[in-house]
């Protein structure tokens, strides 16, 4: 009982993390048809900025989070305007490939600044834990899941209730037509990049709360979140969330039954299977370039 409930809770926590990163991917893809490979890089930036603020500047959880998230979001939007905006509208594919380069640059900058060995965060939230149905639930777990709930909830509200959300949907559905109707696709894309940076920063913080951070480990989460968004569908925000939880569950199930060594193999095989047989994922309606 204890093992099962622990695994279930573990799935929820990792699922929340992947969901959070995945939502950023989806927002970007909807706004500019760019698939970003540098979400992991922004996550890294968020995690280490947060680490720096807490450890070296002695900040509390809330101010450090606020500063980190705002800075990374602004930086992400800034990168879009300065580097990618010129090319993104014309060649989304080339831009997607270029984001691989950006990820490498961010990783190198963080690794030079903070070193490559894992760093542990001092306790910024209570180091308390609870026992529910045999599972140990740390306070950091609860904080990271609540971060996900609040952030994704806010983004879903924005998309469904506001003018901006309507514009984002319009651009996602038909960029050319929405530009004719007076929506600035460039503005929507800039905001989407900002939001993607924001979710990545939150994900970085959530990760830093629960585990030691090192540049390679955190950046790889950006790659490991791809199965989640393929599962859910590239252009569906709830799908990304659902895919995140399925991925978290799958990882924990594989780790429990076959061993942690099998996780990559199974997870990416599932992703390949989805790409082959159901490329739109479970919820997406992404148009796929087919022969």
């Amino acid at each position: 009982m204890g093992v099962v409930s622990q695994a279930v809770w573990g799935s929820v926590v990792t699922g929340a993390l992947y969901g959070l990163v995945g939502v950023g991917f989806v927002l970007l893809f909807r706004a500019s048809k760019v698939l970003s490979f540098c979400q992991g890089g922004f996550m890294l930036l968020g995690a280490f900025l947060f680490y720096d603020l807490v450890k070296n500047q002695d900040m509390g959880f809330f101010p450090a989070t606020a500063i980190t998230v705002v800075l990374v979001a602004l930086f992400s939007a800034f990168v879009y305007i300065v580097v990618f905006a010129r090319v993104a509208a014309r060649e989304p594919f080339a831009t997607s490939v270029a984001t691989i380069g950006l990820a490498g640059v961010l990783q190198a900058v963080v690794a030079v600044r903070y070193g490559t060995s894992p760093l542990a965060l001092p306790d910024v939230v209570m180091s308390k834990s609870f026992h529910v149905a045999g599972a140990t639930i740390t306070f950091a777990d609860i904080v990271s899941v609540s971060i996900m709930v609040v952030v994704v909830g806010a983004i879903l509200l924005i998309i469904s209730k506001t003018q901006l959300g309507l514009q984002m949907n319009a651009v996602a559905d038909n960029p050319a037509l929405s530009v004719h109707l007076g929506v600035s696709a460039a503005r929507v894309a800039t905001i989407a990049w900002g939001l993607a940076g924001l979710t990545a920063a939150f994900a970085g913080i959530a990760f830093a709360l629960r585990a030691n951070v090192d540049p390679v480990g955190v950046a790889n989460i950006g790659f490991f979140a791809f199965p989640a968004i393929i599962l859910g569908g590239l252009d569906s925000v709830p799908g990304a969330l659902f895919g995140g939880f399925v991925l978290g569950g799958l990882q924990n199930a594989v780790a429990a039954s076959l061993g942690a060594d099998w996780i990559d193999l199974i997870v990416f095989s599932v992703m390949l299977g989805f790409l082959l047989f159901r490329p739109t994922g479970l919820f997406g309606k992404a148009e796929v370039v087919r022969l």
Binding site: L35, F93, S96, V97, F223, F226, P227, I230, F268, S269, M271, L272, L275, L276, P279, V288, V289, R290, L291
Partner: peptide, 14 residues
Amino acid sequence: RFKGLYLLLSSMAL
């Protein structure tokens, strides 16, 4: 079956 992004992703999975 696919071009561009989807191939990028499937090759990454590989």
